[in-house]
């Protein structure tokens, strides 16, 4: 396959995945705050700040009063904001256009429909009453896209590269969400004990669509320890970072021609990360949560750029 097309497929996967996480975060973060048990967790200003932080890692000062409609519009539909959902969808489709001949007609049609639906979405309707409808459109459409990828493409290198994009982006987005909600939990609670039992951990699970799974597995109230363990380390949680890294490893091995990945190769880097994470315990993480979250994120960024350097170089 062409290196350029591979690059397009990788980024298409990343943008599709990105649009979904931003949309779900916007939705869950907003709606779960409406009836949150504490005033801190109900604060609309904090919800908006946190949404901006997650999408764009912009820290907004507490003194700065945010305009709700403006923030929601910027994140969802503002074409001039590079981090907006509409731009992620546009980029996904642009990349798909350049790789159209290797994609299935069914998948392309679904993506194209999604693109036009987002492009046509009325911003005025969105600002007043479209938040739920719009974010649901995005999360449902991306679910359809993922199934079309899985079910209508031959599982060869084309598939492996899209899945690399999806997996690396999912891990990165999940790490962003964890970081954001960790910050929210710190901000909204005065002491350690309250921090550990903050309502934000439940919101975090919901933002990653893992609340029910987690309940069934632990049969316990979510707290900082079991939520982080579940979302970072549990291989069977389909949205955990560990799960994404396992998938990354599987797909990178199907691309790499080497049985024994050479040092400095992406396969080597992913394998090493996988081994490290497999034996990382929540106790170790809790010694320095912030430090570990940062390190995981940095590693994921390195893996993403290593894939690009190794496979996608062209003129």
């Amino acid at each position: 396959m062409l290196a350029r097309v591979a690059n397009n497929l990788f980024w298409m996967g990343r943008y599709i995945e990105r649009s979904e996480h931003i949309a779900r975060f916007l939705n869950v973060n907003y709606f779960s705050s409406l009836d949150a048990p504490t005033t801190e967790s109900q604060s609309r200003q904090r919800v908006l700040r946190s949404s901006l932080f997650m999408t764009n890692t912009v820290t907004t000062s507490v003194d700065h009063l945010l305009d709700e409609q403006e923030v929601l519009f910027n994140i969802a539909l503002n074409i001039d904001e590079p981090y907006s959902i509409i731009n992620a969808v546009r980029n996904a489709r642009e990349n798909a256009n350049s790789a159209r001949d290797v994609l299935s007609t069914e998948f392309y049609e679904a993506l194209n429909k999604f693109y036009h639906a987002v492009l046509r979405y009325d911003p005025n309707h969105f600002k007043v009453k479209g938040l739920f409808e719009f974010t649901t459109l995005v999360t449902e459409s991306t679910a359809i896209l993922r199934e079309k990828i899985r079910g209508t493409l031959f599982h060869d290198e084309v598939y492996a590269i899209i899945m690399l994009g999806i997996s690396v982006e999912r891990a990165i987005q999940v790490s962003h969400i964890i970081q954001t909600k960790y910050t929210d939990a710190l901000e909204s609670t005065p002491n350690d004990e309250l921090f550990e039992r903050s309502y934000e951990w439940i919101t975090l699970l919901k933002c990653i669509e893992s609340h029910d799974m987690m309940r069934r597995f632990y049969k316990k109230t979510p707290d900082s320890s079991n939520v982080l363990e579940f979302l970072v380390l549990h291989p069977d949680c389909p949205r955990s970072i560990m799960n994404s890294i396992n998938r990354l490893n599987k797909h990178i091995l199907s691309l790499s021609m080497e049985k024994l990945p050479s040092k400095n190769s992406t396969a080597y880097l992913v394998g090493k990360t996988q081994a490290h994470m497999a034996y990382l315990s929540i106790e170790t993480i809790e010694e320095d949560i912030q430090g570990h979250l940062t390190q995981i994120r940095e590693t994921l960024y390195t893996i993403a750029s290593s894939i690009e350097k190794e496979y996608f170089l062209y003129n």
Binding site: M1, L255, Y314, N315
Partner: peptide, 14 residues
């Protein structure tokens, strides 16, 4: 995606 070397045409694949 293409380049020419020694009068032969190649494409840059992964």
């Amino acid at each position: 995606d293409l380049y020419v070397e020694k009068d032969k045409v190649y494409m840059q694949s992964i």
